[in-house]
């Protein structure tokens, strides 16, 4: 990663002129099922700044997807507030585009290109067909799918579908790109390739992304900043820097150290629970 100028990290809380893009403060999110009320996250605070690769990391069921759904506007918090560029989030909109883990997120009745132009035209990014076509082609070539622009999604492989979804998300140039374990359903080789491509794309455009994963390694590679959540109901446990580490550092001492640190934090609770169990 090209981050030579970030050596002063950590001492003073940054240059005062930098405003967070996304400000989540004291957010509690709850689900209502047919019989129960379930608290998924509890009073979570975090701030995402421009060009952050902000990773949400935590054990399964701790409410990562729920937080993302909240930011996307699909769920309203029962307490606390989420602000995007200072405005409260109340409903879904094209300024926060979501990339899902599921392969069925592409509209099956549109070709690869149409999927992107449809998003552009309906999301209000482009007003003319021609313009939308051009933007779509630009991003299709960014994810290296030029040969498949007129193919329907059911004829693509899982990795290709994910690439289309990412291209669609980036083409809309949202204030923040939300990704919920976008690579989790891919095989290891494809996943690694997609991670590299994502970082390359980031080098190109420096978009802001909020990324959910439960792989510690992926978090360290992808993330510039990592938020660690406690087990259900999710609460903020720590926020760590990882901007200095990328693919090329896998296996380095620093990389391993950070991985180890995160590992310890996530499993601290496990140990705690084990210890308290006999007493109860």
């Amino acid at each position: 990663m090209n981050d030579a100028a970030t050596g002063t990290a950590g001492v003073s809380p940054a240059v005062p002129t930098v405003e967070p893009i996304l400000d989540v403060s004291g957010v509690t999110l709850q689900y209502k099922t047919k019989e129960h009320l379930i608290t998924a996250t509890y009073r979570v605070d975090f701030q995402v700044f421009p060009s952050d690769r902000f990773v949400l990391l935590g054990p399964s069921g701790c409410g990562k997807s729920t937080l993302l759904k909240g930011v996307a506007g699909y769920m309203q918090p029962v307490e606390g507030a989420m602000k995007l560029k200072g405005r409260e989030i109340t409903e879904p909109g094209p300024d926060r585009v979501m990339v899902f883990q599921e392969f069925d997120q592409l509209l099956p009745w549109k070709t690869v290109k149409q999927n992107i132009t449809f998003a552009l035209m309906n999301g209000g990014k482009c007003s003319s067909r021609q313009e939308a076509d051009d933007v779509a082609m630009e991003y299709i070539s960014k994810v290296k799918l030029e040969r498949f622009e007129d193919t329907y999604p059911h004829m693509l492989s899982g990795g290709m579908k994910q690439r289309v979804a990412i291209a669609r998300g980036m083409a809309m140039e949202p204030d923040i790109l939300l990704m919920d374990e976008p690579f989790a359903a891919l095989d290891a080789l494809t996943r690694r390739q997609m991670q590299e491509e994502l970082l390359q794309l980031w080098d190109d455009t420096k978009f802001t992304v909020l990324f959910v994963t439960h792989s510690i390694e992926e978090a360290v590679i992808i993330g510039s900043r990592i938020l660690i959540l406690s087990p259900h109901p999710g609460q903020v446990k720590a926020e760590l820097n990882a901007h200095q580490l990328g693919h090329s550092d896998v296996g380095d001492a620093e990389f391993a150290q950070l991985q180890e640190k995160i590992h310890a934090m996530i499993f601290a609770d496990r140990v705690l629970e084990d210890e308290t169990l006999p007493n109860v």
């Binding site: 899902f100 069925d104 998003a119």
Partner: peptide
């Protein structure tokens, strides 16, 4: 649920949401 959320993501609402997302899906 995923397709519904994708539709909401585009800012589609009301009739446009029904005819552009629900009907084809």
């Amino acid at each position: 649920e995923t397709l519904r959320m994708v539709g909401g993501n585009y800012g589609l609402k009301g009739l446009r949401y029904i005819f552009k997302i629900l009907v084809p899906a």
